[in-house]
């Protein structure tokens, strides 16, 4: 319990991840699935960024080369990874949104169960 309180950022990040993951897995509405995907990824980035942060330290931008004290700066690698990750999740979101648009224009609904039902019905008619 003590550990959880001390690392409240990481705990919150994991809770966000779980919320997003279960939304992406269980929700039947496409748009809510995509929102879940974004919550999941954001949770991960929060986790990564908070792990790389050091209390009281600054961003590693060197102004005076002669007076470098490593303890003054945070680890820049997690921030760079977060940036890369954001790019990935933006493109994934874009492609799932475009799929959703297509599904809606074909089936006139965003609910996946209904879409499956319609698809099955049309398949039976074809045979």
């Amino acid at each position: 319990m003590k550990g959880l309180l001390a690392n409240y950022e990481e705990a919150a990040a994991i809770i966000l991840f779980c919320i997003g993951f279960s939304t992406l897995l269980f929700h039947r509405n496409m748009l809510k699935k995509i929102i879940g995907l974004n919550i999941m990824d954001t949770g991960l980035y929060l986790f990564l960024a908070s792990m790389g942060y050091i209390d009281g330290a600054r961003a590693p931008i060197l102004t005076d080369v002669n007076a470098i004290n490593m303890a003054d700066y945070i680890n820049p690698v997690p921030s760079a990874l977060v940036l890369t990750g954001i790019v990935v999740s933006v493109s994934v979101t874009a492609i799932t949104l475009s799929l959703t648009v297509r599904l809606y224009s074909k089936y006139r609904t965003l609910n996946l169960d209904e879409i499956y039902a319609i698809a099955r019905r049309t398949e039976k008619e074809e045979f």
Partner: peptide, 10 residues
């Protein structure tokens, strides 16, 4: 781009 492939891709 048929309905079935869009659904499968989703």
């Amino acid at each position: 781009s048929t309905g079935k492939t869009t659904l499968a891709a989703t």
